[in-house]
Amino acid sequence: MQARAPIPILRMFDEAAARAFYVDFLGFRLDWEHRFEPDLPLYMQVTLGDCVLHLSGHHGDATPGGHVRVPCTGLREFQQALLAKGYRHARPGIEVQPWGLDMTVSDPFGNRLTFTQALE
């Protein structure tokens, strides 16, 4: 057995808000969506670079308020691109930490993503 990178599952409650935040604002690609039946909750996968996330509307899949750290490069440029979009629910800032740079954004459901760039 060889373990691979985990795929976090984050809880969502509003499909349109999830797409607006993850796809339109952060720039994730929507890979696929799944429903067991038309009137049941959505489960979907989004990807940004090597970061893969699952977003679930299913009760019990995840607890709102999760926190995922996403290692990255080019954080300052990413931040500037996000600010240029004028997303009305977030104006992310960068914090200098002993290990590098962190930029935390919260999704509409209380989950946090911290994009972190290590010191060179």
Rank of each mutant, 00 (worst) to 15 (best):
Glu95Gly: 03
Glu77Ile: 00
Asp24Ser: 06
Tyr87Met: 09
Glu15Asp: 05
Pro41Val: 10
Tyr22Met: 03
His67Leu: 13
Ile9Cys: 15
Leu101Trp: 10
Leu82Ile: 01
Phe115Glu: 00
Gly57Ile: 05
Thr114Pro: 10
Ala3Asn: 12
Arg4Gln: 15
Phe25Ile: 02
Leu75Asn: 07
Val70Asn: 09
Asp50Arg: 04
Pro92Ile: 11
Gly60Lys: 04
Cys72Asn: 05
Asp24Ala: 07
Val70His: 08
Glu37Ile: 00
Arg29Phe: 03
Ala3Met: 13
Leu75Ser: 07
Arg69Tyr: 02
Arg11Cys: 14
Leu30Ile: 00
Leu48Asp: 02
Asp39Ala: 15
Asp102Trp: 02
Gln97Met: 14
Val70Phe: 08
Gly66Cys: 08
Ala17Arg: 14
Val105Arg: 02
Cys51Arg: 03
Arg76Gln: 13
Cys72Gln: 12
Pro38Ser: 13
Glu120Met: 06
Val96Gln: 08
Leu10His: 11
Leu82His: 03
Ala62Gln: 06
Gly100Asp: 00
Leu119Trp: 07
Pro6Asn: 11
Tyr22Gln: 00
Phe28Gly: 00
Tyr87Lys: 11
Cys72Phe: 10
Ala5Cys: 13
Gly66Ser: 11
Ala20Thr: 01
Ala84Arg: 04
Gln79Asp: 10
Val23Asp: 01
Ala16Lys: 05
Asp61Met: 11
Thr104Ser: 01
Asp14Asn: 15
Leu48His: 07
Arg76Phe: 03
Pro8Asp: 11
Leu55Trp: 02
Ala20Glu: 07
Gly66Asn: 06
Phe21Tyr: 11
Gln80Glu: 09
Ala16Thr: 09
Asp107Pro: 01
Ser56Gly: 15
Phe25Glu: 08
Val52Arg: 12
Pro92Trp: 12
Thr104His: 04
Asp14Phe: 07
Val68Trp: 15
Leu101Asn: 00
Phe13Arg: 15
Arg76Cys: 05
Ala84Trp: 00
Gly93Val: 07
Gly65Thr: 03
Ala16Trp: 03
Ala84Lys: 02
Arg88Glu: 07
Pro98Asn: 02
Glu37Tyr: 14
